[in-house]
Design a binder for these strands. Structure first.
Length: 585
RNA sequence: GGGGGCGUAGUGUAGCGGUUAACACGUCGGCCUGUCAAGCCGAAGAUCGCGGGUUCGAUUCCCGUCGCUCCCGCCA
């Protein structure tokens, strides 16, 4: 239906007769002369109608409106002198239309397709197919395509095999809430959608594929966020005979090459810095630090241990911490602004926020009268505060201090414009604890997942001090967002059983839930490990989008509905019956 | 489950205890042969999300509810 795409027309086509098809992006009707900007995926081109060229075409063009789908035939010609549009790739030429076919009329769309105006998310999602016509979403989804294509090529070049794993899987008690699918053929039984292909890919290692990857859809029935959807996509891969360094090197090289190929953003540091979990927590209070700016956390506990300020002294004595960060140039913050910051830390469980301002006449502070000169000097020395800076300190249990100050750091980083929006600051975080204590379940639970191996020398600790065992796991972090995580897995039944026991899973339960895996391990499972990268988050970062919804064609709302399809929706009584289901009141 | 923000013509916003509810873009009609965010003239278009309350009077204040959104919990 078309001989060439709109956006590809250039001077070299002048004199040729072409047939174009697309959407009317914009119409400028001058009476005797009518212009369309004709749009297809490749871009825009101006087409001209006048009675001098074709009276019927010109007459019909009067009836055309934006978003009509049309086909035009005409001759490409150079634009007259002075009428060249430098803002358009096709601005040197235009098409004189001799024939116009309206392939389909269009209602006036609920929002402008031809300009990048803000539109309520509600309306955008209700008419997602129109939203997707707009430049922003076209650009984002094409970027996503480029990224997945790059990844597939890279994986293929590195000898990885793309293998599909089931969507109808089995529910497991560990981890996130499963999406569950009732079985018609087996009354009262259910499949579960994969939270990740974790077990299947490990079985593929036992099966001898050595290098597997998949761009895999995963499902978790948890509440949504800007960076979390019910279903999401990850680059999932697994390697046999690989150590953690092998996986990390492969992924690091891939990410660097990918970023250089598809993005003009700059990588801040290569190779990526590697932080231990403990180091990340100490310096940033969080295991996914945003390394685009400094403002690290400073431990003041020893400096103020003997302070006359009761909160400091008591917190230190009780084994807590006093930590601070130094906000450059923020001494000018008003009382009201500091109150706002105080709200930030209180929302994270801190009881208050101590502030100290460095000025030319010395230190001003909410607690100035309690501090000795020695203590003041120590605080300034430790924080490296310079004139005009604002020091903010929190005293509490280490977990609260970390949480409060990391939130504060993130907020201040943005507000003080310490972040270069063109920068990609990546790092690896390693040496995570294998287990953490769950108060709710009063048992140890896996920090990563229950197939993660401890570091080899750490196994003996599992029985004596489970919380101290370090996992052979690694996360890759970009701009404060976790974009991937992986580990070296357990590959023998003994260690796997050991870990299940540590997790409070009885041998019987382990057999029932994971017997297939334990059995597989007894048939010659190679040492293996892998990683999963969150594709949606990765694309969002490179598209400079705040929410992964902007890089997903048909996302769900924050309340887990689809406004276009109107899902979820009830099913018929007949369907319920077939599935052996009854709706409880 | 909890907390915050938002909801006013098709879209984006303004407004505010008493308005003819304003502006821009869009839409519709007219004029127009060089525009490209075309221009000029004219017009239509809003039960101010929904329900209740306070009030002489509510789009405005209060309560509830629904929707969108951000965050906490949750997310191995």
């Amino acid at each position: 239906m078309k001989s060439i795409n709109c956006g590809l027309l250039r001077k070299e086509h002048v004199g040729q007769s072409v047939t174009l098809a697309g959407w009317v992006h914009r119409r400028r009707d001058h009476g005797g002369l009518i212009f369309f900007d004709l749009r297809d995926r490749s871009g825009l081109v101006q087409v001209v109608f006048s009675a001098d060229i074709s009276e019927p075409a010109h007459k019909q063009a009067e009836t055309v409106r934006p978003e009509f789908v049309v086909q035009v035939t005409g001759v490409v010609r150079s634009r007259p002198q002075g009428l060249i549009n430098p803002n358009l790739d096709t601005g040197d030429i235009e098409v004189e239309v001799s024939e116009l076919t309206i392939l389909n009329a269009a209602k006036t769309p609920p929002f402008a397709i031809n300009e990048e105006t803000e539109v309520r998310d509600e309306v955008r999602l209700r008419y997602r197919y129109l939203d997707l016509r707009r430049q922003r979403m076209q650009k984002n989804l094409l970027l996503r395509h480029k990224i997945t294509t790059f990844i597939r090529n890279y994986m293929d070049a590195n000898d990885f095999v793309d293998i599909e794993t089931p969507i109808l899987l089995k529910s497991t008690p560990e981890g996130a809430r499963d999406f569950v699918v009732p079985s018609r053929l087996h009354a009262g039984k259910f499949y579960a959608l994969p939270q990740s292909p974790q077990q299947m890919k490990q079985l593929l290692m036992v099966a001898g594929f050595e290098r597997y990857y998949q761009i895999a859809r995963c499902f978790r029935d948890e509440d949504l966020r800007a960076d979390r959807q019910l279903e999401f996509t990850q680059l999932d891969l697994e390697m046999s005979f690989a150590e953690s360094d092998d996986v990390r090197a492969l992924i690091e090289a891939m990410l660097i090459q990918l970023f250089e190929e598809v993005s003009d953003m700059k990588i801040r540091q290569k190779p990526f810095p590697v932080l231990t979990y403990q180091e990340a927590m100490d310096r940033f209070g969080i295991d996914r630090p945003d390394l685009r700016f400094g403002m690290e956390l400073i431990d003041l506990t020893e400096a103020v241990r003997g302070s006359k300020f009761g909160v400091f002294a008591n917190t230190a004595a009780a084994g807590g911490q006093i930590k601070a960060l130094c906000a450059p140039g923020a001494a000018s913050f008003s009382r009201k602004k500091i109150d706002q910051l105080t709200e930030t830390v209180k929302a994270r469980g801190a009881k208050g926020l101590v502030w100290l301002k460095t000025a030319n006449d010395g230190l001003r502070s909410s607690i100035a009268k309690f501090l000795t000169e020695e203590e003041k000097d120590a605080i300034i020395d430790l924080t490296g505060a310079e004139e005009g800076d604002l020091i903010l300190a929190v005293a509490d249990k280490p977990a609260v201090v970390a949480d409060a100050l990391s939130a504060l750091r993130t907020q201040l980083g943005a507000e003080l414009r310490l972040i270069d929006p063109d920068e990609l600051a990546l790092c690896w975080v390693v040496d995570f604890p294998l287990l953490e204590w769950s108060e709710e379940e009063s048992r140890w639970v896996a920090v990563h997942h229950p197939f993660t191996s401890a570091k080899p020398e750490q196994w003996p600790l599992l029985e004596t001090d489970p919380g101290a065992v370090l996992a052979n796991a690694y996360d890759v972090v970009c701009n404060g967002m976790e974009i991937g995580g992986g580990s070296i897995r357990i590959h023998d039944a003994e260690h796997q059983s050991l870990l299940f026991r540590a997790l409070g899973i009885s041998d019987e339960e382990a057999q029932e839930q994971f017997g297939h895996l334990l059995e597989a391990f007894s048939y010659g499972a190679p040492p293996h490990g892998g990683i999963a990268l969150g594709l949606d988050r990765l694309v969002a970062i490179l598209a400079r989008e705040e929410s992964i919804r902007e890089v997903i064609a048909f996302p769900k709302t924050a309340s887990a509905t689809d406004l276009l399809l109107n899902s979820p929706s009830p099913i018929s009584e007949r369907q319920l019956q077939e599935l052996h289901l009854k709706i409880a009141e």
